[in-house]
Design a protein around this nucleic acid. Sequence first.
DNA 1: AGCGAGCCCTGCGCGC
DNA 2: TGCGCGCAGGGCTCGC
Length: 302
Amino acid sequence: MPELPEVEVVRRGLEPFTGDWVVDVVGVSELRSLKRHPGPVEDFVYRLEGRKLRRIVRRGKFLWWQLDDDHTALVAHLGMSGQILIGDTPDDFGKLCRITLGLSRPPSGAVTLGFVDQRIFGYMALDNLVPTVDGQPGGSGSDAPVIPSRAQHISRDPLDPAFCDDDFIRRLRRKKTGIKSALLDQTLVSGVGNIYADEALWRVGLHYNRECSGLTPQKVRELLGAIRDVFVQALDDGGTSFDWQYVNVNGQSGYFSQSLNAYGQQGKPCAKCGTVMVKEAFQNRSSHRCPRCQRLSRKRVS
DNA sequence: AGCGAGCCCTGCGCGC
DNA sequence: TGCGCGCAGGGCTCGC
């Protein structure tokens, strides 16, 4: 479950199971879901069992729990198809469930957390928490100025109070790529993926291949505002879901897909001008745009 | 150094 | 009904 709003919906859904909740038993049915864990599966299980899940934190599309030893994180990245679900038993999640955590909070609370991931691009891993370079909180959900070492290189996301707009604008305008490549670069700004990049570019009328260096600071600021707007709106709607794969921890789908104006709208009229929207190949993925509102008025970047 | 291509994977839905 | 193909929202690593 991919982009920032969907991951934040998951994070909020997991908050009730943090604090004094303990990991009693860990089940791993797919070793490749631990490919980023720095050790064998036994190490993952042994170090996790008995730990409390103190806080659940997110930066961009990265999620992690702060464990009660104060220096270890349980990192979860959902990749293209990951979900985290809460159920009663390890059998509640179907055959695509890769990892289960049996959780309890004495005296009476008990649930099972399921890490479900069709394509196995996502993963869970234990990692060390290291200080943030700017001394600000590592992400949404905790005030602690620490972050898993694996996520250190990821920029803050646009909903993070410590995100610096001016730095973003300066760095983006120095890039020698098209604007969409820049938005998908998680070291420049995190949390944006293919859907929300297309939505934000549509809102401000930019072609995905417009050169970053040709944009005025004002235009970049406008684009950043559009990213925030589309994130907040999607969050309010519970995230974007097209099908069975994208659900919150209760298995419910979000409604933002009904509000999309660009992604998946090929063949339909542009909501601003009525021109038929198109879908074009872009870097092994696809881009959606209005041929009239989002023209390439400057030199083409390939 | 920064950039783009290639690759990691499974399973759904469609057309034949 | 069955099969093959195209497609999917991410990110890491590697060459250039």
